[in-house]
């Protein structure tokens, strides 16, 4: 169960979804410039789940191996951000981003670098937008590319101590007539999530105005 204190209300979830949408829109704009093609990104929904549940959730949806780009962030609230794709989609993404001019061998060579760069653009935009919209600052580490399954990505071990929470966002990519699905996950501990919730409250108050609440 998610503790009452940090469980996000409906409006808070909406607000976070919109903020991340602003972030991915900016990322899409950046990617458009990189690729020179239409790139659309959107985040239809968001969930807050336990690490264990996040691993199960992604395991139910994705049966093949996963590729993830990971960046840690710290500041007003700290945590770890993951951009996750099904492994089968990752070469597709690289091809879409680099254009279809490369040979298969070249794609393989470039895969790691291209993934890291794409992930960096998207995660950076999201986190920077969050920081900006919530009027706080965040610093980020350089991206890392990981492969594995839900359990390894969400650092589930057998000790059962994985009690952190995950902001789980679905993300739809549309690049060059290709539909690629992915996920953004933000692993945060309880205090960090509590702070995020407070900041969202402030944001909502600003947007709606006192008369509406």
């Amino acid at each position: 169960m998610i503790p009452e204190l940090i469980a996000l209300g409906e409006l808070e979830r909406d607000a976070l979804t919109e903020i991340v949408n602003i972030g991915v829109s900016r990322a899409a704009s950046s990617l458009r410039k990189m690729v020179g093609h239409e790139v659309h990104l959107s985040v239809p929904s968001i969930e807050v789940v336990s690490q264990r549940r996040a691993a199960r959730l992604i395991g139910e949806r994705e049966l093949d191996g996963l590729v993830a780009i990971r960046q840690d962030f710290s500041g007003a609230f700290s945590g770890r951000a993951l951009l996750i794709f099904p492994e089968a989609n990752s070469l597709e993404l690289v091809r879409a981003v680099t254009g279809d001019t490369l040979t298969a061998a070249e794609v393989l060579d470039m895969e790691h670098e291209a993934l890291a760069e794409t992930g960096n653009v998207i995660l950076n935009s999201c986190l920077a937008t969050m920081a900006n919209m919530l009027k706080r600052s965040l610093t980020m580490t350089i991206p890392e590319v990981l492969r594995g399954n839900g359990a390894t990505l969400f650092e589930i071990d057998d000790t059962g101590k994985s009690d952190g929470l995950v902001l789980f966002l679905y993300i739809d990519f549309a690049i060059r007539q290709r539909d690629i699905r992915g996920y953004i996950a933000m692993l945060m501990d309880l205090p960090a999530l509590a702070i995020l919730r407070e900041l969202l409250e402030e944001f909502i108050a600003r947007v709606i105005g006192d008369d509406e609440r």
Partner: peptide, 18 residues
């Protein structure tokens, strides 16, 4: 529904596309 839509529009005004 008003608060929810205000938040969504705020997203657009903040730079969201759709």
């Amino acid at each position: 529904d008003r608060a929810r839509i205000k938040i969504a529009v705020a997203g657009i005004l903040g730079g969201a596309e759709l």
